[in-house]
Design a protein around this nucleic acid. Structure first.
Lengths: 127, 127, 127, 127
DNA sequence: GTGGTCTAGACCACG
DNA sequence: GTGGTCTAGACCACA
């Protein structure tokens, strides 16, 4: 279902959050689709259900998915992107860190822009 | 000396590492410059010396600075960008996460590229 | 029949209970009126009959409706407001929580009173 | 420290959230005050640390408290109430439910307004 | 069957 | 010392 790396420093539940969002952007998951249940996904991924639940809760908080009582979890239908300045700042910060890293490795600016463009293409996926 | 935000989710020692590298890229710190001692910097920044120690260790590991016995710590003279594929992958990963975030907020691609360009300019600073 | 929101955090059966009581207060349902059967209502509202069952049981427990053997379910005729201290305390508690929430959002007291008055008007409805 | 009722239907972690906010409104807790550590409070209240952590995380998400790395948890200093329409709607809904309940018990409108005013006074506390 | 809450206990990163 | 994450396993409410 989702690619998880248990050795990564980013928590498993966050990796799941990211993977779900990426799947939606790529069109693998669509508005209204049923998500696997917490237990189901936990079994499939051999991960503790609590961890999945934490991921789902975060996704719900971000309005990416919706839970319907007793029926399960679904990709939100009414979702619409909202600019969130404070979250934008976090992203910018992480970008800045990455850019410093790259510059420090001696990567040229045009190369950097190329990398970014590649990544953007990758996100679009089969959409 | 360096801008540190104790509320940030990135560890303080990492913030210091980043700030040092940024200062070098901007030309504020140059090859061969003497770095303040751990104790000195800890006092100046009102930060636990252990934290500075950890930052210096990390910077040394990355060959950004060098310790010379009995003389102190200096910005490396032999600094030359070295591509490090595994580190590149980490950076790409963090970029990807950020890009997904932005796309998810409904930011257009041209806007994203604009943001990146701005950040690159910012890093160059007075260099 | 009744407005139900399956996404709401309040259980569906409770939403039904509330809607029935509101309808009575508004005069849409009156003493002695026949209620639809569990099956009927379940079909009409496309809701699990167990859920309707549970709602009816709760309404019966609160003496809002009565079951008459072989005849069906009716809005109670002997309805008369009874103060129930323990239930009052529950309501007060939920009010308190809401008021704290509003105060915390910086809503002024006069605004709060306005909101309450509006809601009271809304409940009266066409009565 | 905080009054918790383990039998209540509202989760313990939410009761803690509410209690903390109430304490702040009453002036018992003030901007910048240090909160007891997760483990400390868990011991004091004889509650599992995970439950406290959940409460703290929710409070942090609402910007009521701030965590500072390695130092502990503090009441936010820069807090300023923000109207949140969607949350307002939730509060209104719960008010409406309560009002229906009261009306149904035969409480008169002026009495209801009195109760609300009392509760508002109670929240202000010694502030 | 679904998700929500809570406990107990472990390991880790940070300062 | 602080909080963050994860696991394992239990009980409950809801549909």
């Amino acid at each position: 279902m989702f690619n998880i790396n248990p050795r990564s420093s980013t928590p498993i539940y966050m990796q799941i959050v990211d993977e779900v969002k990426e799947s939606i952007l790529k069109g693998i998951l669509e508005s209204g689709d049923k998500m696997p249940s917490v237990r189901e996904l936990a079994k499939m991924m051999i991960i503790n259900p609590n961890t999945i639940q934490k991921a789902y809760k975060e996704l719900e908080r971000q309005r990416v998915i919706e839970k319907i009582r007793g029926k399960g979890t679904f990709v939100s239908t009414d979702y619409e992107g909202k600019r969130d300045e404070s979250r934008m700042d976090l992203v910018k910060d992480s970008f800045k860190k990455g850019l410093i890293e790259l510059k420090y490795m001696g990567i040229r600016e045009d190369e950097i822009m190329g990398i970014i463009e590649e990544l953007i293409e990758e996100i679009k996926g089969g959409k």
